[in-house]
Each structure stands twice: as C-alpha cells, then as structure tokens.
Amino acid sequence: MEKKIIKILSNVLEVPQTDLGEHSSQVNVANWDSLNHMKLVVALEEEFGVKFKDEDILELQSFKLIKFILSKYLK
C-alpha cells in the first residue's frame, strides 16, 4: 500500500518519488494545493476501489493520514 500511495502522490503532485516519504504532508510538499488535493482523492479512490466520506477527504493531509484512513476502508 505504501509504495502505491507514494506513486500516486508523485504522479498527481508531479514530485519525484525520492522526495516523498512518511513525513510528506500538505505543509512540506510544494504542489499539494486544493486543486491537486481533489485530483489526489480521485486517484486514490480509483487505485484502491474506495469512496471516501466528505470528512475523510478533508483529513487526507499527509502520507500517514492517507495510510491511516485508507486502512479503515480496506478492512
């Protein structure tokens, strides 16, 4: 799951995978603005076959939170 999340973040935010890791979040990844955030939500939903609730969409603010919230959907 972690590799897939990094790949999606890299593709959507146009940041090299080597610059991303478990500490990546909206405050330290340059292109993670509101528009790209929605693209990221769509890409994650497609890749993992889930449909995020509205409150979860707002909270997908970092690599760790994406992993944490996705794991609830994938149980």
């Binding site: 405050v27 909270e59 970092s62 760790k64 939170l65 944490f68």
Partner: peptide, 9 residues
C-alpha cells in the same frame, strides 16, 4: 488520527 493531523500540519 488527531495526532496524525497535527503532524500533517
């Protein structure tokens, strides 16, 4: 989750 949100910010 709250701790992770703080970390993210």
């Amino acid at each position: 989750k709250v701790k992770l949100l703080v970390e993210a910010q």
